[in-house]
Design a protein around this nucleic acid. Structure first.
Length: 580
RNA sequence: GCCGACGUAGCUCAGAGGUAGAGCAGCGGUUUCGUAAACCGCGGGUCGUCAGUUCAAUUCUGACCGUCGGCUCCA
């Protein structure tokens, strides 16, 4: 299949055809803004007195198909700045004029014409409308001019285009698959979690089945943390606001914090981050170089104010638990620590069934050193440490200058899920800011006081978000070790219920999570119900099985095998231990 | 927060200015059944919340709460 890069010219042309269709149908009511190709298609922004309605999309789409069928040629013509200026002034197109004014003097300008539609455009088109092939308009949305909320709100129409209908259909099927996996839908259907209007937006309730999965995830994490030399800590959810003044969060992070609360005339603050808490533990006594690195880990629940419009299921919430850790170490130790963080990230990928990832190294913008905390030397050394580590581990990565946060450079790992979507979860960040603000130190070998390096690191990012990603990655069909119910015994008639109970007890004694479906339903219905709940194994128990002391095991794919109860117990326990 | 759409039973959804319906789920019963939906019956909604208009509102208007698609891809 073509990549989005190859498709950009085709989609850019499709955007022009969309604008053509909009002008055809709505005429002078619209002003044109901008219409680029994007990763999965294209959009065009318009300013229009009355908003587009969903019924407009098929009309516009049909019009676009007519234009495509006419095989219109795309023709570019150079134009002078003055000509462009008067062209758009005459036609009362303020956004086009704004674009024009943003183009540096001396750059050549081109007008691209296709059919009756002419647009100031940088170019990058296919030659004719016929090459656009198959189009589909997907949605209408509001978007600020130039993405700035102080600017007018425009009407954006999103669409996509492919050379052939078959490729378009494949893409639409992919979208449908993503909808099928939507963690919000599966979360309800599988009774994993909910968000309760009575409690407030962006706050997650973990139901018993979601709770089992979370506990299994956390059990694994705590084991891994311990194995890798982290110390697990717990810190308060509310701390004096003065602490957040010291850390600087009341300044640079104020936008994302819940408001202060007053207790006995003292201001307190719900924590948006765990770092100050860990720093207080570090500072609680004098530290020696002998005990470094200090690695403090916490499943730390934080609360952040997110604007109502950006909340999204488990992926964007207002209260969540970070799998957070802070590493305090000497410069000589830093590369080993970074390496372990990256290696830890690999372990996460492996354990949770991801086999693809991308790594980004975010550095500061060399043009604006003043906008960052920390000295040039610190930045050079930290970026060097990150680079060296990745190179030594032979990890391919993208170097992203200007993408670092103000307090230090970082490595981000984006994992790629079962249907190819990237998710940014793991982050490993240097912090030059907090050690200085809190005056962190340790006693060096020569007795002098030195400032430790501090690294923030999260693997899942947050338990909630990672859970959401896992639900979609597995499409709700969790591997045995995570599945809330690992097997369900299905007695065919009431007569087998006592036997089903003994099977349940035998497996339960081995620490396995097993239910019995003793409902008054036929076997077909029980199977259907459990299939919808995505239980890994169904154990059918009828007359034959009772007599033989076996169960007929049906897995989620529908495959069947009869085996002794003890044999199934070993199989299931083996999978649980192997985290399959 | 902003633009647009939406909010009717647990879920999916229909409906109309004169106080509501289906399927599934639930409950009761019949059936005792071999690998993705047996049959009969019953209960369940102050139609998101609060105001306003009206003889009358769940339906119209407004505010609020919440959900969904977007608001960083730059001629």
């Amino acid at each position: 299949m073509s990549t989005s890069n190859d498709l950009a010219p085709l989609r850019h042309t499709a955007a022009h055809l969309l604008a053509h269709a909009v002008v055809d149908i709505f005429g002078d009511d619209v002003q044109l803004a901008i219409g680029p190709a994007i990763d999965n298609g294209f959009y065009y922004d318009f300013h229009k007195q009355t908003p587009f309605v969903p019924e407009d999309l098929p009309r516009l789409e049909n019009r676009m198909r007519e234009l495509i069928a006419r095989d219109l040629k795309m023709q570019g013509k150079p134009i002078s700045r003055a000509e462009a200026e008067s062209y758009y002034t005459q036609r009362k197109q303020p956004f086009k004029l704004d674009i024009l004014h943003g183009i540096p003097d001396g750059e050549p300008l081109t007008m691209y014409a296709i059919g009756d539609f002419t647009d100031l455009c940088r170019g990058g088109h296919v030659d004719s409308s016929a090459a656009v092939g198959a189009v589909k308009l997907l949605s209408i949305a509001g978007a600020y001019w130039r993405g700035d909320e102080h600017n007018p709100m425009l009407q954006r129409i999103y669409g996509t285009a492919f050379p052939t209908q078959a490729e378009l259909d494949a893409y639409l099927a992919h979208i449908a698959e993503a909808e099928r996996r939507d963690h919000r839908k599966l979360g309800r259907e599988l009774d994993l979690f909910s968000i309760e209007e009575d409690a407030g937006a962006g706050l997650i309730f973990w139901h018993p089945k979601g709770g089992i999965i979370r506990r299994k995830m956390e059990d694994w994490l705590r084991e891994a943390l311990t194995r890798r030399g982290y110390d697990i800590v717990f810190t308060p959810h509310v701390m004096r606001r003065e602490l957040w003044n010291t850390s600087g969060h009341t300044g640079f992070y104020a936008e994302n914090m819940f408001g202060p609360m007053e207790v006995e005339k003292e201001q307190y603050q719900l924590k948006p981050m765990n770092c100050p808490g860990h720093i207080l533990i570090y500072k609680s006594r004098r530290r020696s170089y002998r005990e470094l690195p200090v690695r403090l880990a916490e499943l730390g629940t934080v609360y952040r104010y997110e604007r109502s419009g950006v909340l999204h299921g488990l992926l964007r919430v207002r209260g969540f638990t970070q799998d957070d850790a802070h590493i305090f170490c000497m410069p000589s130790q830093i590369e080993r620590e970074i390496e372990d963080c990256v290696d830890f990230a690999w372990e996460v990928l492996r354990v949770f069934g991801f086999d693809s990832y991308k790594v980004e190294l975010s550095a500061r913008d060399p043009q604006k050193p003043m906008e960052y905390a920390g000295t040039d030397e610190e930045w050079a050394r930290a970026e060097g440490a990150l680079k060296n580590t990745l190179d030594r581990m032979q990890v391919p990565y993208s170097y992203m200058p200007g993408e670092a946060v103000f307090y230090g450079p970082k490595i981000d790992v984006k994992l790629v899920d079962a249907i190819g979507r990237p998710w940014q979860l793991t982050t490993v960040q240097f912090d030059f800011n907090l050690p200085r603000r809190f005056e962190l130190e340790y006693v060096a070998e020569d007795g002098s006081l030195q400032r430790p390096l501090m690294v923030h690191r999260a693997l899942w990012g947050s338990v909630e978000r990672f859970f959401g990603v896992l639900i979609e990655h597995y499409a709700g069909a969790f591997p045995t070790w995570l599945a809330p119910v690992q097997a369900v015994v299905l007695p065919i008639t009431d007569v087998q219920v006592p036997y089903a109970r003994t099977v349940q007890a035998a497996l339960g004694d081995a620490g396995l999570r097993v239910d019995v479906d003793d409902s008054n339903e036929r076997l077909q219905k029980k199977i259907r119900n459990q299939q919808l709940l995505k239980v890994p194994y169904m154990l059918v128990a009828g007359k034959n099985e009772v007599e033989a002391g076996t169960v007929n095991v049906r897995d989620r794919s529908g495959a069947q095998a009869t085996m002794a109860v003890a044999a199934f117990k070993d199989k299931l326990a083996g999978e649980a231990i192997a985290r399959k």
